[in-house]
């Protein structure tokens, strides 16, 4: 084998092994060196041997054991449905929030007496938000892919009939068709998913949406409820909590019926959400400290002034936490009830 042929062989081998997992590479490299050497002797040249071996990409494909997929056919339909819902819930509200902000700006321009600038300015503003919407949709898509990839990778098949695998399948192993009330259909999850995504989009892109809007003389004053100066510390916990909620919803969707894994996943996700919620409500300065003082300075109505004296952030945190905890217990209770009531039959 001359140096040119040696290089040709090395090129071919590299193109095969670079497509293989690290631990297989050395062995395949040695085997291919042996094979190409033998074939070159038989065929007359390395060139002819390589032509006979064919495309190195095809060769490498033969070495790949099993299917290498991120999301398999079992979860694909649920994944596709969830992607559509989440993308719609991300893009539409974000567009509306941005369009509303631009419209408000447009009204300001009208009041300033330059109406001819309103349409181009508002349109320009809306077009400028498109990259933001695209980025948000990409993040949402990535989150869903990650969730389903984890479900696929962990091999969560949610097959409760484990004895089938041990003793071999017989018609007696067929599980009963779950009654309608024991099934989790897409409509059950949609409220939760829409709420999580909407809340997430608003918290990330428009936290000022959670504000009190009051008339201050000729203008509208917007006083945020949350402490936006500390938002960089608060938002990550919110996002993690919402991601746990979304994972729970995706898991329920993939399971398709009320069963023990669904209950366990729900309890774990709710637990994570409550811990994060406790952190947000009690360890971080969630509430805007200027909320009441600013409103008191603006509002003149005595009824509203009296209402503002009731505002107590500590109490609000406690009540909100209790509400979240009650909701988590209620949801787990419903799953447990439906699991015991219907799925065992």
């Amino acid at each position: 084998m001359n140096p040119k042929e040696q290089e040709q062989m090395e090129r071919y081998i590299y193109q095969v092994v670079r497509r293989l997992p690290g631990k297989q590479r050395k062995e395949v490299e040695e085997q291919l060196t042996e094979l190409i050497g033998d074939m070159a002797d038989g065929e007359g040249s390395v060139e002819k041997a390589l032509a006979k071996l064919g495309d190195p990409a095809e060769f490498a494909k033969q070495y790949q054991d099993g299917e290498r997929v991120l999301i398999g056919p079992e979860f694909y339909d649920s994944f596709l449905w969830l992607v559509k819902v989440v993308l719609l819930c991300t893009a539409i509200p974000l567009f509306c929030v941005n369009a509303a902000a631009e419209a408000r700006r447009g009204m300001g321009l009208m009041e300033e007496g330059i109406p001819q600038a309103v349409v181009p300015s508002v349109l320009y503003g809306i077009v400028q938000t498109i990259p933001e919407i695209a980025a948000a949709c990409l993040c949402a898509f990535g989150a869903i892919v990650l969730i389903f990839a984890v479900l696929e990778k962990r091999g969560i098949r949610l097959d409760l009939n484990k004895e089938t695998k041990q003793a071999g399948w017989t018609p007696g192993c067929l599980p009963p068709v779950p009654p309608k009330k024991a099934r989790i259909n897409r409509a059950d999850g949609i409220v939760g998913i829409v709420f999580i995504v909407l809340f997430g989009v608003l918290l990330i892109f428009a936290p000022e949406f959670f504000s009190a809007v009051v008339r201050d003389g000729e203008e509208l004053a917007v006083v945020p409820v949350f402490n936006l100066e500390e938002w960089d510390r608060i938002l990550p916990l919110f996002i993690l909590g919402l991601a746990a909620g979304l994972f729970d919803e995706a898991f329920q969707l993939a399971a398709g019926r009320y069963c023990l894994p669904v209950l366990i996943c729900n309890v774990l996700c709710s637990g994570i959400q409550l811990v994060l919620g406790y952190g947000i409500l009690f360890a971080l300065p969630l509430w805007n400290p200027d909320f009441v003082p600013r409103l008191q300075a603006i509002v003149t109505d005595p009824d509203l002034q009296r209402f503002l004296t009731w505002w107590n952030p500590e109490l609000a945190s406690v009540l909100l936490f209790l509400l979240c905890a009650a909701f988590a217990f209620l949801e787990a209770g419903i799953i447990l009830y439906r699991m015991l009531r219907y799925a065992k039959k």
Binding site: V28, Q31, L32, M39, K52, L53, G54, E58, Q62, Y63
Partner: peptide, 12 residues
């Protein structure tokens, strides 16, 4: 048998 079939088969 093609080499690209045989070698992965031997490994398997």
């Amino acid at each position: 048998i093609d080499p690209n079939t045989l070698y992965p088969l031997l490994r398997r």
